[in-house]
């Protein structure tokens, strides 16, 4: 399962949640942490929005592809290192990866690339 596809669906979910119910989520954490993913999928289905439900189903298939075929006695490993945070925020923010933010902070000249590339 490609990480790109997971990230794509997760980002779409993030955008819709922010627009429809003004909630922001951690997109990167969503595709890394199964418990967080299950919470978000549940949240999406509770909204009763067709597109959101569709993306939630898609994400579930990508995140838990072989859930039904696991042998009995198998305990799913969780990698949760921090509690899921789903909090409403006053101002919407973009779905942005940390490296993007870091790159913008690394600009030596703050006026570079303002109003033109060259």
């Amino acid at each position: 399962m490609s990480n790109t596809e997971r990230m794509s669906v997760a980002a779409l979910i993030g955008v819709i949640l922010r627009r429809k119910i003004n909630r922001t989520i951690d997109v990167k954490w969503l595709i890394e942490n199964e418990a967080y993913a299950q919470e978000i999928i549940k949240l999406c289905r509770e909204q009763d929005l067709a597109d959101l439900t569709e993306y939630a189903d898609h994400l579930e298939k990508l995140m838990f592809p072989k859930e039904a075929f696991k042998p009995s006695g198998f305990a799913p490993t969780t990698f949760q290192t921090k509690p899921p945070t789903i909090q409403p925020i006053a101002k919407p923010i973009a779905v942005e990866l940390p490296d993007e933010i870091e790159a913008e902070e690394e600009i030596a000249n703050p006026n570079k690339y303002v109003g033109g590339l060259r």
Binding site: N3, T4, S8, L12, V15, V95
Partner: peptide, 15 residues
């Protein structure tokens, strides 16, 4: 525009 054309026009994005 804020979210970017990759996501909003094509439902894809660069990792």
């Amino acid at each position: 525009e804020h979210d970017g054309l990759d996501l909003t026009q094509h439902a894809e994005r660069v990792m």
